[in-house]
Simulated scan of single mutants.
Amino acid sequence: MKNDFNIEDMLNRIAGLMVKYPKAAMFQLYDEGYTSMFEQLLSCIISIRTLDEVSIPVSKKLFAHARTPGQLVKLSPQGLEEILHGSSYNGQKAYTMLGIAQTAMQQYNGELPADYDALIALKGVGPKCANLALGIASKKPAISVDSHVHRVVNRWGLVTTTQPEKTVLALEKQVPQNRWIDINRLLMPFGKFHCTHHLPKCTTCPIVDYCRQVGVKKFS
């Protein structure tokens, strides 16, 4: 018999477990001083289809050259592409970033607004990056769902969804707003290191008494 879901207790237990694991890339970069909306949005773009182990050093390399839209627009597409080497689709990401920087300069006086609709209107920015940047840089309540978060909450049986976008909407109905940003902060590394895709560590999981273990056939 599984316990009824208690999101606060579940997240608190996971937080205790995650202290021994690396933080998700954008949260780590924030702790190191890269706190602006622009920096956070660019680091999220770098992370697309790229491991955190690569995203963090590539982000730092970029920020050594440019940390503001005004500084970034001075870089050539070829130069920016080279800086982003190691991140997947670095050429496309270079053009995306330059477009964001130009829009920031032309429409927002060099500073991106803490507004979901404005961020999502930027070419190349999807819901995941917009919500992450908002939550981390501006502390606005926002839920960001990547493949890890989507898998974990469906495995729990908390939601039954087929797409991350639908997972966001389902979670917004069940998670207190003051814990929205914790969904990605905690569940991304939880899904990467503990509640893994092929062989989750159920025998040492702090919330196994809540988890319905949907679809789990083997575990360690």
Results as ranks from 00 to 15, higher is better:
residue 90 N to Q: 13
residue 188 M to H: 05
residue 39 E to A: 06
residue 200 P to T: 01
residue 94 A to T: 06
residue 179 R to Q: 14
residue 170 A to G: 09
residue 38 F to N: 07
residue 149 V to M: 11
residue 110 G to I: 08
residue 128 K to V: 00
residue 59 S to G: 08
residue 117 D to A: 14
residue 30 Y to P: 02
residue 39 E to V: 01
residue 110 G to L: 12
residue 170 A to N: 11
residue 145 V to N: 14
residue 105 M to D: 04
residue 21 Y to M: 08
residue 64 A to G: 08
residue 210 Y to D: 08
residue 153 V to D: 04
residue 1 M to N: 09
residue 22 P to T: 05
residue 174 Q to K: 15
residue 28 Q to N: 11
residue 54 V to R: 13
residue 93 K to E: 03
residue 127 P to H: 13
residue 182 D to G: 02
residue 173 K to E: 15
residue 161 T to H: 06
residue 70 G to V: 06
residue 69 P to L: 12
residue 156 W to D: 02
residue 12 N to T: 15
residue 214 V to G: 05
residue 159 V to K: 09
residue 218 K to I: 07
residue 33 G to N: 10
residue 50 T to G: 06
residue 93 K to G: 04
residue 206 P to C: 07
residue 1 M to W: 04
residue 43 S to N: 05
residue 64 A to I: 05
residue 11 L to Y: 13
residue 11 L to V: 07
residue 50 T to R: 13
residue 191 G to S: 14
residue 50 T to C: 14
residue 139 K to N: 13
residue 58 V to T: 04
residue 75 L to S: 03
residue 6 N to Y: 11
residue 125 V to G: 06
residue 207 I to K: 09
residue 16 G to W: 02
residue 32 E to Y: 08
residue 4 D to P: 01
residue 63 F to W: 06
residue 87 S to I: 04
residue 116 Y to S: 03
residue 19 V to W: 05
residue 109 N to D: 15
residue 21 Y to F: 15
residue 145 V to T: 10
residue 42 L to Q: 03
residue 80 L to M: 04
residue 186 L to Y: 05
residue 37 M to K: 02
residue 2 K to C: 02
residue 27 F to C: 00
residue 209 D to I: 02
residue 59 S to I: 00
residue 50 T to I: 08
residue 218 K to D: 06
residue 39 E to D: 09
residue 146 D to Y: 13
residue 135 G to T: 01
residue 201 K to T: 08
residue 2 K to Q: 11
